[in-house]
Simulated assay, not measured.
Amino acid sequence: MNIDLHGFGPAMMAGTLMTVKLALCALLLGLVLGLLGALAKTSTIKPLQWLGGFYSTLVRGVPELLWVLLIYFGTVGLMNALGEALNLPGLELSAFAAGVIALGLCFGAYATEVFRGAILAIPKGHREAGLALGLSKGRILSRIILPQMWRIALPGLGNLFMILMKDTALVSVIGLEEIMRHAQIGVTVTKEPFTFYMVAACIYLSLTVIAMTGMHFMEKRAARGFARAE
């Protein structure tokens, strides 16, 4: 079947690349925030527990679209003040940066709970064995806890990444030219909404299949030593 995009094909491809770049950058930020949040919530220090709980509860309690709008428009005054202080008039947060921060913040809040569950699933005897061997807390974390946590958390993180990939469409409301933004422009020009939205749906589905395939191989690789031990 030949689909006529009226010359918008390259624009849709550019939007796909922007979507992938946005999703990967938000993923990296979210993984860091999620790991820090999980370590805070599983810490024995009460203020850190409260901080981790406050972060995950606050962010998960507000829709992702609102975070995109709040971060993009809410930083206008802050960026203007920073621009005046640095003598850089017109300083502003780009739509891409706002999208990365908002989506990374939301991904990190959900990843906090995934990482937390994975950490709690590791038997306490493993930590005690590390202490008995004279390992420092840092080495126990890096050599014993994190590798096991990663294997347990991967399926949950994979599901969150699928959601993140689709949530990139929310950033179109602040003008970022990703898949949905170019599809909306194509609809406005050609008056063919079904064609462009169907193409956008196929692109998202293709990206999801690719991501699922990658996650499958990552899960198999992470479980290699565990499978041999069994």
Rank of each mutant, 00 (worst) to 15 (best):
D4P: 00
L5K: 06
F8N: 03
M12C: 09
G15I: 03
T19E: 01
T19L: 00
V20W: 02
L22K: 00
L24N: 02
C25Y: 10
A26P: 07
A26H: 06
L27C: 12
L28R: 04
L33W: 09
L33P: 08
L35G: 09
S43Y: 13
I45Q: 07
I45W: 15
K46N: 12
P47Y: 06
Q49D: 08
G53D: 07
F54L: 15
S56M: 13
P63M: 04
E64Y: 01
L65D: 04
V68L: 11
L69W: 13
F73H: 14
F73I: 10
G74C: 10
L78H: 04
A81S: 05
A81Q: 01
L82P: 01
A85T: 00
L88A: 10
G90V: 04
G90H: 05
A95R: 06
A95P: 03
F96H: 06
A97W: 04
V100K: 00
A102I: 12
A102M: 10
G104W: 04
C106Y: 13
G108H: 08
Y110R: 06
T112Y: 05
V114N: 05
G117K: 03
I119W: 00
I119F: 09
A121Y: 04
I122Y: 00
P123M: 02
G125S: 03
E128T: 05
E128Y: 07
E128F: 05
A129Q: 06
G130W: 09
L133D: 07
L135V: 04
L135K: 01
K137F: 09
G138P: 11
I140E: 00
S142H: 09
I145P: 03
P147E: 07
P147V: 04
M149Q: 03
W150L: 15
W150M: 13
R151L: 13
A153I: 07
L154P: 01
P155Y: 09
G158R: 07
G158L: 11
G158Y: 08
G158I: 12
L160G: 11
F161C: 13
F161S: 10
F161N: 11
M162K: 07
L164P: 07
M165H: 06
K166F: 13
T168F: 02
A169D: 01
L170F: 02
V171P: 02
S172F: 05
I174F: 01
G175Q: 10
G175H: 11
E178S: 05
E178F: 03
I179C: 12
R181T: 12
R181G: 12
H182P: 02
Q184S: 15
I185Q: 12
G186H: 00
V187M: 06
T188L: 11
T188S: 15
V189N: 08
E192C: 09
P193G: 13
T195M: 14
Y197F: 15
M198F: 15
M198H: 10
V199P: 10
V199M: 14
A201S: 14
V209L: 15
I210H: 00
I210F: 12
A211V: 14
H216S: 15
H216W: 14
F217Y: 15
K220F: 06
K220D: 14
A223S: 15
A223I: 08
A223H: 08
R224V: 15
F226C: 03
R228L: 14
A229P: 01
E230F: 13
